[in-house]
């Protein structure tokens, strides 16, 4: 499996997109830390990049990569290798290279300028979001036969999780503001990995504001060891379940 993943990895490196992505992340994070006198503010700007750009790039790149290596996958299928193994290698190659790009591009500046628990949390959530969006991309690409349709669906997926979901949540909060919503919203945030990652990071950054009012509920929950574990487990589930669904689909798919 790792042999196959290695070839996927080489293929991705040759396309230079990932290298450009690394360079982009490195430039942006470096300049953010240099420009902002306050490293806390730089982290906030980085947070926006991690919540928007990283999922977008990951989901689009993984989708395009899948369609581009379709011929390679077909070739491999003619060999005595199981379908699960082929798709998993593709996934490991793609997600691995994107995570490596993220860790290099954002990790180095963070380690230089902000080697704190907050910085580590930032790297953790960024990597998790990369892995999660990659599995979503694989699910979408396995389901859609056409490339254009696949990319469209992937974009829609990103749009829903990164933008639309928050709007719906806001609408819900205001529509049902007469009811105790703490537990419900807690549950609802788990249904969106980007929201969950954001709240997890916010607890590190805006801790004083979150301590106020209902914020205390979230603080008590997410700030505790159990909350940390919960976040990690849910994020992991978000990575595993779409991937598992993609594999199941791929195994039965008439190629």
């Amino acid at each position: 499996m790792f042999k196959l993943a290695k070839y996927v990895w080489y293929d991705i490196l040759r396309s230079k997109v990932v290298i450009a992505y690394t360079a982009f992340l490195l430039t942006v994070s470096m300049s953010l830390f240099q420009l902002e006198a306050d490293s806390g503010k730089a982290l906030l700007s980085l947070l926006n990049i991690i919540l928007l750009i990283v999922p977008l790039v990951s989901i689009i790149f993984a989708t395009i990569h899948y369609y581009n290596s379709y011929e390679f996958i077909e070739l491999m299928l003619s060999q005595p290798v199981s379908r699960t193994r082929i798709l998993l290698s593709e996934y490991v190659g793609t997600a691995g290279s994107l995570t490596a790009a993220f860790l290099l591009g954002v990790g180095i500046p963070v380690l230089i300028y902000q080697p704190t628990a907050t910085g580590m949390a930032l790297l953790f959530t960024g990597s998790m979001l990369t892995i999660i969006t990659c599995s979503l991309a694989f699910l979408v690409s396995v389901k859609a036969r056409e490339k254009a349709r696949g990319i469209g669906a992937a974009l829609l997926c990103w749009f829903y999780f990164a933008l639309l979901y928050d709007g719906l949540l806001l609408l819900l909060i205001f529509t049902f503001s007469d009811y105790p919503l703490e537990k419900v919203t807690l549950l609802l945030t788990s249904l969106n990995p980007i929201d969950l990652a954001r709240i997890f990071l916010m607890l590190q950054l805006d801790i004083s504001a979150l301590m106020g009012y209902t914020g205390a509920t979230y603080k008590v929950f997410f700030g505790s060891g159990w909350g940390l574990l919960y976040t990690a487990v849910i994020l992991l589930a978000w990575a595993m379940i779409p991937l598992w669904m993609a594999i199941r689909r791929f195994r039965r798919k008439d190629l």
């Binding site: 928050d166 949540l169 503001s177 954001r198 709240i199 979150l210 009012y213 979230y218």
Partner: peptide, 19 residues
């Protein structure tokens, strides 16, 4: 102002929508 009206919306702090 939104947070003042409904503290629950604090949940959306730093989301793109709020920006």
């Amino acid at each position: 102002m939104l947070v003042e009206r409904d503290p629950n919306s604090l949940l959306l702090l730093r989301s793109f929508m709020v920006g």
